[in-house]
């Protein structure tokens, strides 16, 4: 299985700096169709209007967290590949996210190689 780089990717983070970094790194990996949301609720609205091939979301956001977004998405039986990114690396949080249906988990700060590796683990080879 190889990654379809024409797919639409949704990135969710309340820090504009992180959105810009992730979008740039995704661009370097060949992804051109990248949408941005600054919290879970905004992400859900975007997901109602478009089919995404990958969601990459921060955890710590208000009013809806990344975990809330993940639970809402899975609650709709949407199995879109979902990668959680967070600066908080507690074992219980990883387990919570996994139990909620996350596909992979990235700890901040991360580099382009880690992002590529995690996307590849979820979507297939580049």
């Amino acid at each position: 299985m190889s990654v379809d780089k024409d797919m639409h990717v949704l990135i969710v983070d309340d820090y504009k700096t992180m959105l810009r970094i992730i979008k740039n790194l995704l661009g370097q990996l060949g992804f051109r169709n990248v949408d941005e949301a600054t919290d879970g609720e905004m992400a859900l609205k975007l997901m109602n209007g478009r089919k995404y091939g990958l969601v990459i979301s921060d955890w710590n956001m208000e009013p809806m967290t990344g975990l809330g977004l993940l639970k809402s998405v899975r609650g709709k039986n949407d199995n879109v590949p979902f990668i959680m990114i967070t600066a908080e690396s507690k074992t219980e949080n990883v387990i919570t996210a996994k139990e909620a249906g996350v596909n992979n988990y990235i700890v901040k700060p991360f580099n382009a190689d880690t992002l590529k590796q995690k996307i590849s683990a979820v979507l297939g080879d580049f």
Partner: peptide
Amino acid sequence: ESESLLNGPQMPDKAITQVDIDKLLAEF
């Protein structure tokens, strides 16, 4: 302060690494 949020980044001596997380996820 909202209780639903995580506490943010741990201090380095309290954080688990990406390698630890990968091992943990692999167990699932």
